[in-house]
């Protein structure tokens, strides 16, 4: 029985392309999240905290545990001045 080896060429191409697409997307996502896995299942609180992290560290995924805020942190929140919807 002859092996249909020619069918393996598109199979290999498809596998490579799916893998390339997945790897690229993963690399892009990780690069946007400072090398950490992206957040998921976010609610309004998480969004607010991530915006607070951005005000504290300059990036939404930046983290720091010391209690000294950067200068101007007190007045960098627009939370209080946003209109009520």
């Amino acid at each position: 029985m002859p092996l249909p080896w020619e069918a393996l060429i598109p199979f290999g191409l498809l596998t490579t392309m799916f893998a390339a697409a997945g790897t690229l997307l993963n690399t892009s996502k990780m690069a946007q999240n400072q090398g950490k896995r992206p957040r998921h299942n976010l609610d309004a609180w998480d969004d607010m905290m991530m915006d607070r992290d951005r005000r504290l560290t300059g990036h939404i995924r930046g983290q720091k545990s010391d209690t000294t805020p950067p200068p101007g942190f007190e007045t960098s929140s627009k939370w209080y001045t946003e209109s009520v919807e």
Partner: peptide
């Protein structure tokens, strides 16, 4: 009063 400068994960 100094605000807390700790970000979300440590909090």
């Amino acid at each position: 009063v100094q605000e807390i400068g700790t970000s979300s994960a440590p909090l």
